[in-house]
Design a protein around this nucleic acid. Structure first.
Lengths: 242, 242
DNA sequence: CGCCGGATTGAAGGTACTCAATCCGTGTGG
DNA sequence: CCACACGGATTGAGTACCTTCAATCCGGCG
């Protein structure tokens, strides 16, 4: 389960799929610096759908860079309600919620077979004290998470069901495109229930919205296979409150 | 409008109302270190209700520690819809959304007469490279913002109107108590419309929920004056989905 | 005094939820 | 190989909750 280190050349040349995409890609670091960051990471493989990367209440040691696969994060309410707060894919970093209290405040669960790189946070801090560009980038990553959350708040607070689903699909499309995949044809890794939890809707509502999008020719849906047929019109759905 | 610096002794002895409460309070810093942080801050006074501290699109230079008064932050949608993402009070730090792109992604607007301390972010980074405890604390502040946002996502995604309002009131109560004010009697600084935007509800719904809480003896409301009469029962509202 | 904006209250309507039946794809066992 | 069971997805009907629209109230200010 625990294996060390990643090849530097791979890191550089295959950034779009590498474990440190989000952490290192936009930063101008020397090879030696890369090596340092590299040696602190620990590859963890073998996560399958449903496995927990961490649970709410677990002590905090590391951030995790997703090297392959994808995860969801969810927060739990006392009465058992749960809210999916995000779907993270390859190259993204999770676990930043835990920095504030040294305890994880949400669950991270694998959506499919996945691998992650653990980044011990105190070592990350130590190195970033010596590398201003890494320091700044770490701050940017955390800030990006804040901005992302604000976008979801906007979605949950002021959009109707179909607008939420359109926003969800477009967000996915965009992130896949950034990774070199098709922005119009993709497989969803999550159930209607999970999408619903993320969007603040019931699974039936999500299903109906999918069906309706298909009826009007916006997308083609076959359960978890999505084909966006009319991207501009889907985008237009978001910009006009009708 | 621009005035430098804050008295150190005041910083130490009046932490609960000082400008750097959130930044410095839990950190163990020497007087000299405090002085350094101190000298980089710039006091800005004279904000009145409705004044913008920054706008979406403004270039990013500084975080802001609220020294007195309070602000709201809101994100805007293309079609004009707006979502209030938070109400910040004395001692809290805002502006972290802008780190990710060096541009502010939301508006910050004064809710009442207010003063802030600008904390130039690049200088903050410089100092925090030399002071690990400050560095860690800066990270904790950003992480806390992430956790806060996740809590709001839970609220917006899975709570009913009255539960949302109860959560809002209890959150206020708690933050006021932490500042030495009464946790049961306080003045709201925001309109029903603003509360509604924050909670993902229409102003009429907020008003009705207030009225209903009053009818059943949970609180006493006189427009913006709130008196929580039955704190335990208000808390219970949140823990059971009924 | 009368206006103004914010707050309250009422009635009607719509969106999303609940409950329930059915469908469909996958995997299992006869 | 097919029948069946299972979980997830779809679809329908009825309902609840919140919104919308509109009237009224209230406090502050010119």
């Amino acid at each position: 389960m625990l294996q060390p280190v990643i090849n530097i050349a791979e890191l550089r040349s295959h950034c779009s799929s590498c474990n440190l995409r989000e952490l290192c890609m936009p930063v101008d670091l020397s090879s030696m610096d890369m090596q340092r960051i590299n040696t602190l990471t620990q590859l963890k493989r073998g996560y399958v759908r449903g496995d927990y990367l961490y649970r709410s209440g677990d002590p905090f040691h590391s951030l995790y860079a997703i090297r392959s696969g994808s995860f969801k994060t969810q927060v739990l309410h006392e009465d058992g309600r749960e809210q999916v707060t995000g779907f993270q894919m390859t190259g993204e970093i999770i676990g930043m919620d835990a920095i504030s209290t040294d305890v994880h405040t949400c669950d991270a669960i694998a959506m499919e077979s996945s691998e992650v790189c653990a980044l011990p946070f105190d070592q990350l801090e130590t190195i970033s004290r010596e590398l201003p560009s890494l320091q700044r980038h770490l701050h940017k990553i955390m800030s990006r998470e804040i901005v992302r959350d604000q976008g979801i708040m906007l979605l949950l607070g002021s959009m109707r069901a179909e607008e939420r689903l359109a926003a969800f699909l477009l967000n996915f499309s965009q992130r896949l495109a950034a990774r070199g995949f098709s922005p119009t044809q993709f497989q969803l890794r999550m159930s209607r229930q999970e999408i619903g939890s993320y969007l603040g809707l019931k699974l039936e509502t999500v299903s109906r919205a999918f069906s309706h999008f298909q009826e009007v020719g916006l997308i083609s849906v076959k359960v978890r296979s999505i084909d966006i047929l009319d991207l501009p019109r889907l985008q237009a759905l978001l910009k006009s409150s009708t």
